[in-house]
Design a binder for these strands. Structure first.
Lengths: 181, 181
DNA sequence: ATCCTTTTTGGTTGATTGACCAAAAATTCT
DNA sequence: AGAATTTTTGGTCAATCAACCAAAAAGGAT
């Protein structure tokens, strides 16, 4: 009884995610989004809301890549070893060197709305809990080791954008695995 | 034989540094800079050049805080232990939670000019060499340990902005020191 | 005191930004 | 076919952006 949407909100979210991912929040304009999606600004506003809502949708579309990727095989610290291998591999083979959308967004967290700020921080907290839970599968509760592992993930994803020597990224990965015992 | 500058370029650089530091590169406008410095945009352009040159000056004004702070007492890995203590302390007591200007700039590195991109990366490289040199003072050459320490610094400075549990920041600091032996 | 040089002022520029809206188009249901 | 409903189109809107410039102001040198 109504005109159907011509775009798929899910693929639209993914397209916007890629733009925000590469250009940052302030760095992407509405017209950037229009150019990347082929959807006019009027439709974007009607379908989602203002810019901050577009970003929220982009963040949702990223979950599969960041938190979803944590569903990796193994148990306990084995899963963490596989996870950081996966991250390192993904990050070093990305020709665009985009690093991680969440971490990049965290670095410009001041410029987000309260709502999106919370959404970003929540994802980092989820990462922290994922790490702690994985270690507890081995009966290990070591807050400092968890923090160090989270730090390794964060630094890996940050430095991936910076053209640093690849030996550094490898070193961070290997040390993180070594520390797990 | 000419009208003297009414502003001190050094303090002007420091003022601009603080604005860029808090708001990011794209996030700060010329009028932000004018408001913070009291110097009109015409003078800024005449004295420095376009926006990217203003940022370069701000980056220079930061060196004392980032690389200059590495002149901490001790030798070898002792110096690294003091350094990360200093960083942790500085970062956790900053009410504005600004983290590190260089790391924050690295996260939006795509949006900088080639020149500033290089300036940012160069500072990270300097940090890496500082770490390696410090370890070599103890006769230790351990690229993975250096990478891990650099990772700890980067993650500490990144997460400092994100309202994460302070225990995480402490954990990252302590693990970095522990790994040094 | 007057010239000379440089800084500063105060403004304009054209482009771009995010936000919004009314009218046209598209589709399903009756 | 026509009514109802939603999306899309294409545009406007004020605000802001970075960049630049001519003229006024401020000294130091002579």
């Amino acid at each position: 009884m109504a005109r159907p949407k011509v775009y798929d909100p899910a693929v639209l979210g993914a397209q916007m995610r890629d733009v925000f991912w590469q250009k940052g929040y302030e760095g992407t304009s509405l017209s950037d989004l229009v150019a990347a999606t082929g959807v006019r600004s009027g439709s974007l506003h009607a379908g989602f809301g203002q810019k901050s809502a577009l970003f929220a949708a982009a963040l949702d579309a990223y979950d599969e890549a960041f938190l979803g990727a944590m569903d990796v095989e193994g148990r306990g610290r084995d899963r963490l070893r596989h996870y950081i291998d996966l991250l390192h591999n993904r990050v070093t083979t990305d020709p665009a060197k985009r690093g991680c959308f969440v971490i990049a967004s965290a670095s410009e967290i001041d410029r987000h709305t309260d709502e999106n700020r919370e959404a970003i921080q929540s994802r980092i907290r989820q990462m922290q809990m994922y790490i702690e839970n994985a270690m507890e599968e081995d009966g290990v509760r070591d807050p400092d080791a968890s923090a160090a592992f989270l730090g390794a993930v964060v630094s890996l994803l940050t430095l991936a954008r910076c053209n640093v020597d690849t030996a550094i990224l490898r070193g961070i990965r290997d040390e993180a695995k070594r520390r797990l015992g």
